[in-house]
Nucleic acid binder design. Structure first.
Lengths: 219, 219
DNA sequence: CCTCTCAGGTACCGTACGGTACGGTTCCGT
DNA sequence: ACGGAACCGTACCGTACGGTACCTGAGAGG
């Protein structure tokens, strides 16, 4: 397994500029607006350079995903001594971050792009997006889960299943709804808090009564 | 509120044939494969008829969603006396049905299509898809929630929130992953059972110990 | 037998895309 | 100062799409 950290050559500054413009075009107008001619015009470069740098249009799309992923760096303050309060805060922070990322313009646009291409490119872009975009966030979540278990604050047998449970509690069908054009939540924090409460009721060690949860979750 | 049941004129049998072919093309090759010429050839009709019947290409897409929705009829056996066992069975059945629907070829293809179009048509198709496709399943779920509450088997203050919690527990990030090209679950039933267990631990009246849940959910 | 309507088949048009080729310019190393 | 690489701008090509027009044939009704 490679270190997979960002010691990859990535792209030159000029190429990053181009990819930034590409993301802007994609966010503003969807994949129909991301034409090679349009990108060349917007980025003040020649189409020939585009093809030289990225191979073809799909190469541009893949580079955009890699570039966007390279901008996201999750600062996981590991090592801090875990108490139940800190765990709760970390979980809530993670939930907020997750919702914020998923609701971001660029994330939505890239997901729409990859999903739209899935039917015709054998999910190459989809795989890329899942790997690049998810790796950081998944790793952080799994670290949180394992840390909680080590500190005897969480109980589960399968950390991955527990994480997916938490993910479902946080996101529910919100992601797909946003991808379909619906607006996001008014208050991501509220949603994250509720999800953490439910998650701790399921996998926490503190015997919070289910009744107390229901009252707070129903508000 | 209109009855919204399928007393709408829908389409003629001939048009339904055409829409069936359109769905087939979409499932097989994505929206790039769904061209007016291709559809006319596959359905043995003329492009002129397509434009006469559906207006333009977007009209065809909208008609496909309406047609597909008209084929799905959820048989909600309401009225049956609700015990905790029956509630649990109903919840599990709902979870299985939900997963099966979301993993269906046509559903995935239509969702991909609508998501891909969202950026450029102002989410018109997305709204259509959410309304037509979700209404049935949401209604059935809400009926189940309310029935469980009336029978004092479920406790919550906000039925919609409870439903979304259940949805998240059942689906997690599976839908988006499938949209991105990943395969579905091997065993939908297992997933539904686990979701129901967690949901009942959160909102059920029977005081199932959280420990018992953790053991069964971690397998 | 005639005619009107409806729908299928085909040819066509304008457009816009992906991809390539070429001339001109800037910049860097020597 | 010179040569070459990199790059920009533009023009170009083939293709394929959405949409339109026209012609044909099959029935229905008189």
């Amino acid at each position: 397994m490679r270190p997979d950290t960002a010691d990859t050559p990535q792209f030159s500054p000029r190429q990053n500029e181009v990819l930034e413009q590409a993301l802007r075009l994609l966010v503003e107008g969807g994949d129909k607006a991301l034409t090679t001619s349009g990108l060349a015009r917007a980025a003040s470069c020649s189409k020939e350079s585009l093809y030289k740098w990225f191979g073809d249009r799909d190469g541009v799309l893949a580079a955009m995903i890699a570039y966007q992923a390279s901008k996201v760096r999750t600062a996981d303050r590991a090592g801090e001594k875990l108490t139940d309060q800190i765990l709760k805060q970390n979980l809530e922070q993670f939930g907020r971050d997750l919702l914020e990322v998923l609701a971001g313009d660029v994330s939505l646009a890239l997901n729409r792009l990859a999903i739209g291409q899935t039917s015709r490119d054998g999910s190459k872009l989809g795989k890329l997006l899942v790997e690049h975009g998810r790796r950081q966030i998944d790793r952080r979540a799994m670290a949180l889960m394992e840390a909680g278990k080590r500190a005897s604050l969480l109980r589960f047998e399968n950390a991955d299943a527990a994480y997916h449970t938490f993910y479902g509690l946080v996101v529910s069908d919100l992601h797909i709804r946003m991808l379909l054009g619906e607006p996001g939540l008014k208050d991501n924090s509220r949603q994250a808090e509720r999800a953490v409460e439910a998650f701790l009721a399921l996998h926490g060690v503190e015997q919070k009564t289910a009744d107390a949860l229901r009252v707070s979750a129903g508000r």
